[in-house]
Each structure stands twice: as C-alpha cells, then as structure tokens.
Design a protein around this nucleic acid. Sequence first.
DNA 1: ATGCTGACTATGT
DNA 2: TACATAGCCAGCA
Length: 121
Amino acid sequence: MIDSAEGVRSRIWSVIRKIPRGRVATYGQIAALAGIAGQPRRVGQALRSVPSGDSIPWQRVVSAGGVLGLGRYDPMAGWEQRVRLEQEGVRFGRRGRVSLTEFGWKGRNPPRRRASKKRAR
DNA sequence: ATGCTGACTATGT
DNA sequence: TACATAGCCAGCA
C-alpha cells in the first residue's frame, strides 16, 4: 500500500495527538511512530500545515535533546510553547531544555515526589 | 526538470 | 558548549 503524502501527514498528526499530557516527544520519535523513521523534517513540515485553531498539542513536540526548536519558525511560538508545557507540569532545565528522561514520552514517568522506599515526608 | 529550502538529527571539530 | 557538515526527502520556485 502506498503512502500518500497526505496519509503520512495524517498519521503524524495522529501520533502527536496521542502524546500524553505532561510529556513531550521528539520529532525523530514521532517520525518513527508515523512510519517515516529517519525523516524527522517531515514531521515539522506536517506541523506547519496544521490549520490554526486545530486542537493538536504541538507544544509537546520538541527537538532532539529536549530543546524547544520552534524559535526558528516563530520566536513567539517558542515562548508560548514553554508556557503551555509548564502549565502541564513539565519543568525545564537551566538552559531551557526539557529532561527527556523524566518527561519524554515513554522515557520515564514524571517526577513523583519520592516514590522510593524512603517514605515521603 | 533542476535546484534550493527546511517546526530535524547525528557526528565531527 | 557552539558552529559546521552530511544525510534525509517532500514541497516549491
């Protein structure tokens, strides 16, 4: 079965919509899940085609290493992305990066206060 | 048809 | 850590 460009684009959006709240996924990860591994740039291109007003959670899509990459396309969007993510509970590191280990989709769970054996408190 | 661009990533210096 | 380069391939002039 062929992969029409539009089919791929739909799949990309579909994958992005599945990213849980409070988590983030990288372009590469999304590309792989959408069946176009190795072509993360197409994810960005698909996102660019998202009709404004659409409820797609684009803010959960980040560049490799947890970097917010939107700055190149629209500096203001980069700022908004950070605000939105923080509202979902995502915390940023010193250089404005997200810890993929803790917030990456399927990476690990978000920090839960002392979930270890040492009793919290 | 050809060539350049890009919401990217990995690697090298 | 930061910048440069190569690989990638669908859009667009």
